[in-house]
Design a protein around this nucleic acid. Structure first.
Lengths: 176, 176
DNA sequence: AAAATTATGTCAGTCATGTTGACCGATAAT
DNA sequence: ATTATCGGTCAACATGACTGACATAATTTT
């Protein structure tokens, strides 16, 4: 097991503002907890809305990424979500049955099923994304541009290399 | 449904470094995706180690927070995890059976079961936390103190108020 | 002292979301 | 013509969440 880079120390203050102390054990545990709680709270509102419609977080992810990239293939969706096609199939079939998503045959490769949101799907996607955008908009405007930059930098460095490549591809306007 | 604060625009660059543009729809969607992918990649290594031991993420959370606060009560753990006592019970019973955690009767209130890691539990908690600390240590040192500060500020603003209060209580040395 | 509340545990059933493995048809690539 | 790929499906299973009901012990309130 690889070891932690800097040893933990007990005494003294530990504001991240103090030079070099942001690699101490206590500060890193704080990061772990912050990410855990933020993710939990961040998803809560959308989860509530979804459960009113008898949908779950898995449905949300599909709706989000289809809305993000209309015409996305099943393969590409699988690569993004990191789940099996059997798991996706159950969720996707339900969304098609319930008229949130429609498939169309790929024009070049007729094996492909290109996924699109229906009007009903667009409407739900907007509600869900608005909830989460609003939370970020509040956080971003409370803290300002420099904090936003730092936030995005750290999250980007947390990613696996291949995930970072993927994000670079779908956000070509960004430098990170 | 509440609307997004700033309207989306199509043209032009959109670096977060440009003043005021960090509230645009595209930038907020980027935040959503960054958080999703970062959380997924962040938990992956620990999940692998856990599955070798026939444990899951639920066990990890219990082990982490018991290690974080030895002697924590079941009630306090439930409040942190936001799950039902039945869900916790299954996981906790298993961890006790497998000798990762021991209970002791509360000295003042004998109804309470104070939870502690065994040596085996401490060893596993260290391995798991090291994995996640190392990932943060790398990200933090790649990006530096200002980015760390911004990261923590934005995540703190994403929290629900009561979660923020809780974190203030357990990290009394921090200002946020 | 009796009653109410609290902390914890347990039984039983359900649901959502992930997994593996096997197999299929349609289509594309070699 | 053969092989590979895209997508779907069936079956079985594991995990981790949920609800509801009930139980025991200990503490607090009346």
């Amino acid at each position: 097991m690889t070891d932690i880079i800097l040893p933990q120390k007990q005494s003294g203050t530990s504001s991240a503002r103090e030079k070099g102390l942001f690699l101490r054990r206590q500060e890193l545990r704080r990061a772990i907890e912050l990410l855990f709680f933020a993710y939990r709270d961040f998803t809560y509102e959308a989860d509530e809305l979804l459960s009113d419609l008898d949908l779950g977080r898995a449905h949300h992810r599909v709706i989000y990424f289809v809305g993000r990239q209309p015409g996305i293939t099943v393969s590409d969706l699988l690569a993004i979500l990191h789940i099996t096609k059997q798991s996706l199939s159950r969720v996707l079939s339900h969304l098609i049955d319930e008229d949130y998503i429609i498939q169309e045959t790929g024009p070049r490769d007729r094996r492909q099923r290109l996924l699109h949101l229906t009007d009903k799907g667009v409407s739900l996607e907007k509600k869900l994304t608005d909830l989460q955008c609003n939370r970020f908009a509040r956080a971003y405007s409370e803290r300002g541009i420099d904090a936003v930059d730092g936030f995005q930098q750290i999250l980007t460095s947390l990613l696996d290399d291949d995930t970072r490549s993927h994000l670079r591809a779908v956000h070509p306007d960004r430098i990170d």
